[in-house]
């Protein structure tokens, strides 16, 4: 029945995209937290933070973009959980469809919703004087990096959505992901941090991802950060995908 994978995924993605577009509140809450953080750091804390960037919003934006994705994928987990608990997921599984389509639909919906949220956050950043000399190539690299990052976190969200026993639990998995950028180079340079925290900050995945995006947006060569960041994202993507599929098969028939 795998011959139907593409049409079935298209049909089910259309369905879950309607869930996103018809609950405007989830779109707003997805972008409102990162935007609030952006404004808070630019206008309240930013003045007291010393970075090497000319403007703090230029320094800050990459971290805010990662937080946007981390917030966005929590809704992916919740949507999947609601499908499971309402029984509609079982209805789909009892149909003669390519079964993985039910998961891929959520993954593609997550990708579309997060890309929209990222565009909104970047536009708001432009309003508060974010400027970038980056060319098309650098922007494409940033977009590619964020898409791989979104896919990786989305598959983590699928694990949460498949294994949670409550909607709150499904959404809560993303709290550590939202918090992780704070102990990285996203908001302040890591060289002000004390020993062990600094070591953690410099070797956790958020720092190379943030540094690579920041260099690309500043029109500078990202150097090895780009490859380290890409390696982290792809490794996370593969591990999360394998774990999500294992969870799916353990729970399914």
């Amino acid at each position: 029945m795998s011959t139907h994978l593409l049409p079935d995924t298209v049909a089910l993605t259309g369905r879950s995209l309607r869930h996103v577009t018809r609950s405007v509140d989830t779109i707003i809450t997805t972008v409102i937290m990162p935007i609030a953080m952006l404004l808070l750091f630019v206008y309240v804390f930013g003045g007291a933070i010393q970075t090497r960037s000319a403007s703090y919003v230029d320094y800050l934006l990459p971290g805010i973009l990662l937080i946007t994705v981390a917030t966005g994928v929590s809704y992916t987990a919740v949507r999947l959980f609601v499908d499971r608990s309402s029984g509609i997921f079982e209805r789909f599984q009892s149909l003669p469809i390519a079964r993985p389509a039910a998961l891929w639909a959520h993954v593609l919906t997550s990708l579309v919703a997060n890309v929209l949220a990222l565009v909104v956050v970047v536009l708001v950043a432009v309003l508060v004087d974010f400027r970038s000399p980056a060319g098309i190539g650098a922007w494409a690299a940033v977009a590619g990096m964020l898409i791989v990052f979104t896919l990786a976190l989305t598959w983590v969200a699928v694990i949460a959505g498949l294994s949670a026993s409550s909607a709150e639990g499904a959404g809560a998995f993303s709290y550590p992901l939202i918090f992780l950028p704070f102990i990285s180079s996203a908001f302040v340079p890591t060289d002000t941090m004390p020993g062990p925290i600094r070591v953690f900050a410099e070797y956790q995945p958020v720092t190379p991802i943030v540094d690579a995006i920041r260099a690309l947006l500043a029109g500078q060569p990202p150097g090895t950060d780009l490859w380290v960041a890409l390696a982290w994202c792809l490794a996370l993507l593969l591990v999360a995908y394998a774990a999500a599929m294992a969870t799916y098969h353990r729970r399914g028939a």
């Binding site: 369905r15 869930h19 309402s86 029984g87 509609i88």
Partner: peptide, 9 residues
């Protein structure tokens, strides 16, 4: 009971 309809559609 085991199969739901989609309330948002």
């Amino acid at each position: 009971q085991s199969a739901a309809v989609d309330e948002i559609l």
